[in-house]
Nucleic acid binder design. Structure first.
Lengths: 146, 146
DNA sequence: CTGTATCCTTCTCGATACTG
DNA sequence: CAGTATCGAGAAGGATACAG
């Protein structure tokens, strides 16, 4: 698997505030920052889908694959491994043949899903505003440039 | 600028529920889905930093650049343009020389920032759990494989 | 100062093939 | 069934040079 634990080894550097006496600021740009880790997970193309599906019921690998249209076997595996490692999803292997592996949300995962809903709600509430802003912006650009 | 409006043109296809009579599901995998748009924006390496900084005060381009350690001029420009287009940030050009351009949050941007704080709070509250889950997982892997 | 354009490296991810 | 391994295409993003 080529994806390592941390996403890009390049410049895992400084926090936002300068070295001197700036105000404290809770986020930094490092990939290993806690907020970034969760952000990267929930913004991941597949993670959120998996979490949402598992919030309703326990599912097998293939069931997940079938439900999530367009996911490759590889990415589903990678996604599930990340979620499992972060303690958001529990993986249960039933020692039978053919193998039966089931995935379900942990309480932590369920709690994250709940929190993310706030963001979804916000988006629902403001999608029209955003669309309008884009149209306005694009219109302005079109008449300025061409 | 190589980044287009939509991020990847490949397979902007189906929703999660099947074509038949599955339960309704609010997210799909298309890049142009509203939730994904916002998710991609807030998970962007720099967008959130910019929003957080502008939440406190209005800043010029160079001030932002100085505050955000490690951002390239190119990415700051790209980020600000996206945020402006989405109506989250307002850009004001003062017609003086040398040019003076100021950025500030719109009410929409401020409201998003507020919403995102819920996620930050969740992360703060659960970062220890996540770290422990990771350690446990890594330990299990280490003793199984090597 | 505030960008835009170009090049070039790195990373991501899907496709494919193979295994227990 | 549930993965793992490998490869290659494409996208993201930093460095650099240049412009209004």
């Amino acid at each position: 698997m080529e994806e390592g634990t941390s996403k890009s080894p390049t410049h895992a550097q400084g926090t936002v505030e300068g070295p001197c006496c700036e105000e404290a600021f809770q986020w930094d740009t490092r990939e290993d920052c806690e907020v970034r880790q969760i952000l990267d997970r929930i913004a991941d193309k597949w993670s959120l889908l998996v979490i949402a599906l598992l919030d309703k019921r326990r599912l097998r690998f293939t069931e997940l694959r079938r439900e999530i249209d367009g996911v490759s076997q590889r990415m589903l595996t990678v996604t599930l491994r990340q979620l499992e490692r972060d303690g958001l999803v529990r993986r249960t292997v039933h020692p039978v043949v053919p193998p039966r592996v089931e995935y379900e949300l942990t309480p932590l995962g369920a709690s994250l899903h709940e929190t993310v809903q706030a963001l979804v709600t916000w988006t629902d509430a403001h999608q029209r505003e955003i669309a309008e802003a884009r149209n306005a912006y694009d219109a302005r650009m079109r008449q300025q440039v061409p």
